[in-house]
Each structure stands twice: as C-alpha cells, then as structure tokens.
Design a protein around this nucleic acid. Structure first.
Lengths: 345, 345
DNA sequence: TTGTAGGCGTTATCAG
DNA sequence: CTGATAACGCCTACAA
C-alpha cells in the first residue's frame, strides 16, 4: 500500500520489510547509538536493497532545520563569489547538503529583513557571509538570534574562530609593496578600494605599512580610490598617471582595477613593466590572462570557501577533519611579468 | 499555545486570530478563487500584522514539490555559469523561489544517477540544464519521467520551446567571420572548441559557412582544436601561427581561448591588430579587460538565464510576462580594438 | 463559501 | 534497546 510502485520507498516500507517500527529505522538513519548491532545491519541491508533515501522535506519539517548551506552575499567581484562557491561545493559534494545562493542588496534598507526572512523560511543548516556584508555585526547577531550557524569571511578575523574565515590582507599587501620598494621603486601609487569595505581598509593599511617601513614617506597624493571595478581602475589609473609623472609602480587593491590601470598605462603609451610596474590583488582568472601577465597577491578564496563549509558541517555526520582549523589563510605574492625594476633615471 | 512567543506564527495562529479554520487560511495563501472577499481581506490583514510566512518545508512535504530552482551543470566556463546564475537570480528575486546550484561531473559514469538523486531528493520546482550536459537527451527524458520541469540551454534549440533557451551561434559566427573577410582578410585561422560540445560544432559550422560563402576556400590546415580554456588557446594559437605564417586573423570559439591566442601572438612579437586580428566569442568580462579590448560575439547568457527562469515559473503565481517567448536569443558582434584590416602585402 | 478528517514522511516523547 | 503515539505545518478530499 505504501509503495505501490509509483512512488519512492518510505520509512514505512523499510519498517514493514524489516519487521520493526519506523522509529527504529529512523534510528538507523540518524546513527543512533542505542541500537542492537544485528537490527542495524539488517535494516541497513534492506535500505541498500531498496535504494531507500529519506525524504529531506519531511526531515526538514520534523527537525525544523534544512540540509542546505546558504551563500549570502552582495559582492561586486564575480570571480570572488565563484571561487568561494566552488570551495563550498567541493566540500558539500557527497554529503547530504546542497548549496543555495542568495544575493542581497547592501544598499537596501531592507537587507537585514531580507536575510532574516531567508533564514526563517529556508531554515538552512548554516550560512556563509561574504564581504562586505560579513563585516556587519548586526547580521551575526541575527544569525545567533535565529539559531542559524554562520561563518563570516573577511580580510581580518571578524568573529570567534568557528565563525570566521579570514585572510591576512594587510601583511600580504605590505609584503607585495615592499617587494616593489626592494626592486628600487620610489614613487608608488595606490588604487584603493571603496570606503566601507574592510578589505579596502586592510589593503590600504598594508600599503602604508610598506611606505613607513621603507626609505619613503607615505604620500597621500599618490592615492586614488576605486570601487573594485574595471572602469574605476581605468579612471583611477589615469588620475594617478596624470598627477604624478614620476610614478614607476602602481598597486591596485584588486585585479580588476589593476587591469584598468593597465589600460590607462597603455592609453598613455607606457610600456608595462618597462615604464610602469603594476601589482594587483586576488589572483582571479583575469590576472594570468592579461598581457603582460599580472603580478598579484593570491587571495586563497577557494580554500576559504572550503574552510567555511567545513566549519558549518562540524559536528554533523558529514563533518570533515580540519574543521576546527585556524581561521586565518595566508595570501602570498604571485610573481608574473607586470613588475620589473624601474629604469634608471 | 501555538505561538508562545518562541517560535514563528503558524497557520493555526492565523486561523485562530481570524476565527476561521486553517483551510480557509490555506485558501488565502494559495489564492483560491472560491473565497468570500471579506474573509480574504480580513485574513490578509492579520497575515500582514503578524508577519506570518508559510513554512516552505511543510508546503514542500504536502505538495511533494519544493520551491527551489536547480542549476545543474558541468561547464568549464566560470563566467558563463555566473552569467546564467545572475539571470536566474534576477527573476527569482522577490518570488518565493530560491536557487540551488548543483554541479556534476560529466565524465563520471554516475552523472545521470547523481542528477536523478538530486531531483528525487530535493524535488525542485524545475531545473536549468547548461551546456554541454543540456545536450544529453537522456537527462531530458529523466526529468520528464520524474515530473520535474526543465529548461535546456544550448547553442541551438534542443527541445520544445517551453523547455529550451538557445542562441544562434552558427549564424553569429558566420557574420563575425564574414566581417573579417569583408575587411580584407584571406587567411583566417580557427581555434575550435572541444569535440562533444554542440556549441563547438555550431561555431565550427558558422566558420565554414563564412569560408564557403566568400572568396575563399575552407582550409582544414588552419583549424586547431582547444578545450575552451586559456592554456589550450595559447597552444592552439602557437600551432596556428607556426603552421601558417600568412595568417592575418584568428577566430577563437570562446574568449578564454582568444585570450590565449593573444598571448601566443604577443610571444611571437606580433602586434594585435596590426599583424593579427583576433575575434572571440562570449563577451565575458575578460573581453573588455584585455589589451587590446577584444572584438567578440556577445553571447546573451544573462538574458538566456532570465528566460530559463521565466519559463520554469510559467503557470505559477510568480509567473512573469514573456514567459512563453521565443526560445531563440541572438548573438551579435561587439566591435572592439582587436580587429583591423590586414596590412597590404 | 467554509469546515472536518486525514495524510505528506520524518522525528521526539516516553513508556515498555 | 524498541515501539506506540503524537507532533512538525500545510494541503487535498470530501462534506456541510
């Protein structure tokens, strides 16, 4: 009656076939400890034969919790989002969890309400918050209040280790710019990221660190701000090149803007890296595709996505090792062809 | 008792507050026609006051259908996947549907079984199949069998209009290559896509069409195959340039390989477009970021993603206009700076 | 036009 | 260790 051939097998079918109650089958499904080993083996065999798979909707209703991981973001960098997504999906593969992507609008006054509704309705197992909204403490508070696991991704540790995945942007930029200084560059421009982004702030600080650290002074005149997009990189690059002809190098706070700076240089007929060295940040696909291939700081977003997923799965049957690992992931300089020593004056 | 302050309001709370049965509330939720207008207004007011939202898990269980749209793919082109995703999400925004991303491995023998399990477990409202797996008729059959709506995206119409979203790759490539011919190019190389991809086939045919159509003959020697990735574009470009020094133009079957061809040209010290014109396909972000900016065929994947989502939502309360529209979307040539007339010999 | 009884497939409670 | 019984929140069928 339960399984008349049309639908899939249910817990009732298994219970009947095994001659036990459905609660016992449920115990097998949920790996309950209090279970006779023989009973378990018997039921597991039947489950295997029938190809029975528990219905996630019914479980979700009973457990008041879904087997979904939410990716909540309003990130202007498509490559970055995609990288995180791939990292998460890699961990979810083979588990009973699926990824649900939920973009929001950080400019909107209803953003917090939107996310609240998303979490209340879908009741995901946990959500991954991407920068810049991950920097909003209100959202973390919301998750706690709703009893939803969460991981905040950022350019610095933003929360408790189990709720954080971070990169060391400041130190990485410091090192990258220091590299330029060591090559002999003395007039280095900065294309900063948009205000309100922690990543922009950290990278700015890293740039300043390298200035104060070396034989130079920080020159606020050699700083232009972009919005992390290509066009803003062109504009900022052009302003920089127009205002300070002595510039021999530019550090852009992400690869897209670095590509824009490259365009600005080409438009002025400059040779890169002969006349101008350029360094980016992210190491997204575009970096290697440009000509010359872009020297950039590799942002380990794939690994960060993986770590975020592992943290959310910690404590479940799909838990993986390293789940509790250090939330900090190191960014490192990838040297390609867009950097050289400055020409001797 | 139902709502003791801890949890969210349920249909019972609304029914009690409104002094009606829960079935009546259910009728309001589901926009039933047989409902007294006063009753409806009254209940709707209470729903608004309480902020009540129906529990999707319970609905999914009762309806045996989830309010999820699945994006199933194994596509090597990250930008393409992202574009489709954005298109779908744009349509889903504001509806009760969410997007669930489910990548698969087309090389695996268990791919069909994987997708079957995904659909059986999640019971999505519908799924969007991306190329190349969308070209597999077995998957369409599977969806029909499981009673799951689906839309197949491809470089040609692959199914009934309500299950298809397509672009006119062949004609678009024909026009693009014809453009090169019209500029005076007589030795044009092709970097084809991987075998087994319908898009690769269509674009190849479009290339041949332009050859036979014009003052030239199709020369199989000037064809190299890549796998749609950057590195393969470099390799194919180098082979092309080495084998046929008379080449003045290359058409690459996607932007990534075009970027590779550009690298191959630069490595040989060629000027683009002075010595060599290059045309790509897709118009993904990279096209505009390269130097020189890449002339390419714009593949309207965002629009195609939107259309796919609209077709899936057709017939639901979230249905949008144009849902039944023509499944064909036109690709058009975007002229940038990577193409010029060949130098006079 | 509205209500009642029962079911969707699973898990929790609590007794045996 | 195992099993009745009652949720979980909503929907369908049938009745009123």
């Amino acid at each position: 009656m339960d399984n008349d051939g049309s639908g899939k097998a249910t817990i009732n079918d298994i219970a009947r076939l095994a001659g036990v109650s459905k609660k016992t089958v449920s115990r097998v499904i949920n790996r309950s400890a209090l279970l006779n080993e023989d009973t378990r083996q018997n039921i597991e065999a039947i489950i295997r034969e029938t190809g029975y798979v528990p219905n996630p909707q019914a479980r979700a209703l009973a457990l008041r919790r879904n087997f979904l991981i939410g990716l909540v973001h309003d990130n202007p960098n498509a490559q970055m989002v995609l990288g995180v997504q791939q990292g998460i999906l890699g961990v979810l593969k083979g588990t009973e969890y699926e990824l649900i992507v939920h973009p929001v609008d950080r400019g909107s006054t209803t953003m917090v309400a939107d996310i609240r509704q998303f979490v209340e309705r879908q009741r995901p197992h946990g959500i991954v918050l991407l920068p810049p909204i991950s920097e909003n403490p209100e959202l973390a508070e919301l998750c706690r209040q709703l009893g939803c696991r969460y991981v905040r991704m950022g350019s610095d540790v933003l929360d408790a280790p189990e709720n954080s995945v971070a990169s060391n942007d400041r130190a990485a930029v410091h090192a990258a710019v220091r590299h330029l200084v060591d090559l002999g560059h003395r007039f280095i421009g900065l294309i900063a990221g948009p205000e309100g982004f922690r990543s922009a702030f950290e990278r700015f600080e890293g740039f300043k660190d390298a200035m104060y650290d070396g034989p130079m002074h920080f020159n606020a005149q050699a700083v232009e701000r972009g919005d992390y997009r290509f066009e803003s990189g062109i504009a900022a690059g052009e302003r920089l090149l127009a205002n300070e002809p002595r510039l021999t190098a530019i550090f852009a706070s992400n690869d897209e803007m670095a590509a824009g700076a490259l365009h600005a240089a080409k438009r002025r007929g400059l040779d890169v890296p002969g006349d101008l060295s350029i360094v980016g940040f992210d190491d997204t696909a575009i970096a290697a595709h440009l000509w010359p291939p872009l020297t950039t700081v590799r942002w380990p977003i794939l690994e960060m996505g993986r770590a975020a997923a592992r943290k959310l799965l910690a404590g479940t049957r799909d838990a993986q090792p390293e789940a509790a690992g250090d939330p900090l992931f190191l960014s490192t300089l990838i040297e390609r062809a867009s950097v050289a020593s400055p020409r001797v004056a």
